[in-house]
Amino acid sequence: MRILLCLFFVFFVSCYEVERNCTDYQTGTFTSAITINDSTYNSVFTRTKDLQVETYKGHVDSTTVRWINDCEVIFRTINPKNMQEQKDIHLKILTTTYSTYTFEYSYIGDKTKQKGTATRIN
């Protein structure tokens, strides 16, 4: 009986998958929150299939959007003003809910990844 319970438990735990309805978040208007070294950075952005316009502390940035698959995207700054802005960003959606998604991102070639949450506002 004990073995049967263990098998039953393993069966249901191994079938659990994190929900990722990434296509629901490929377009729209969102707010995002990213925490780095105990500081939280908030921004608002609008994304279409090809373009993302983000506002952070009154500064507007526009990037092209290239989806690698349903859950991973590459952003490229349209008019970079410095070397940092010339680096492309890779973002991966990790989980989704009915109105939010969690993500991780990094500059292409960097091993350091940051995590954040985005919330749909329309």
Score class of each variant (00 low, 15 high):
T100R: 04
L7F: 14
S106P: 05
F11W: 11
G58P: 05
R2Y: 11
L94G: 07
V13I: 13
D38R: 03
T48L: 06
F103Y: 05
H59T: 14
V65N: 02
K57E: 15
R76Y: 04
F30Q: 00
H90S: 07
F103D: 00
K115G: 11
V10E: 13
V44A: 08
L7P: 02
Y101W: 05
D24F: 11
R47H: 03
Q26G: 13
P80I: 03
T77W: 04
Y107F: 08
V53D: 07
M1K: 06
E72R: 02
F103K: 01
C15S: 13
E19Y: 04
R20E: 10
T97P: 08
F75D: 07
L7R: 03
Y98F: 13
T63D: 10
R20V: 07
I68K: 04
T31W: 06
N37R: 04
I36F: 08
C71K: 03
S43A: 07
W67C: 06
T40M: 01
R20K: 05
G116N: 01
L94I: 11
S106H: 15
T117K: 07
T48A: 09
F103T: 01
D50G: 10
K49Y: 10
L5H: 13
E54H: 01
T64H: 05
L5G: 12
F9C: 15
K111S: 12
E17N: 14
E104N: 10
T112Y: 15
S62H: 10
V73N: 02
I121P: 03
K115W: 10
D110E: 15
I3H: 12
T55P: 04
D110S: 14
E85D: 08
K92M: 04
Q84P: 02
S99K: 09
T117S: 10
D61G: 09
T77S: 11
R20P: 00
C71P: 00
L5D: 12
H90N: 07
V73R: 00
T119M: 12
G109K: 01
Y56C: 10
C22M: 12
A33N: 12
K87H: 04
Q84W: 05
T29L: 09
T23Y: 10
L5F: 13
D61K: 01
F12G: 04
V13N: 10
I3S: 15
T29A: 11
N21Q: 13
Q86Y: 01
C22G: 12
K111G: 11
E85N: 05
I68Q: 08
L5V: 06
T95F: 09
K57Y: 08
A118K: 06
D24Q: 14
K115L: 13
Q26Y: 03
T112G: 09
M83N: 12
I93P: 06
Q52G: 11
T112Q: 14
C71T: 06
I89C: 09
T31G: 12
T117Y: 02
Q86A: 11
Y41Q: 10
D50Q: 11
Q114V: 15
K115H: 14
Q114R: 10
I78C: 09
K81H: 05
K92Q: 08
C71Y: 00
I108W: 02
Y98A: 15
E72N: 13
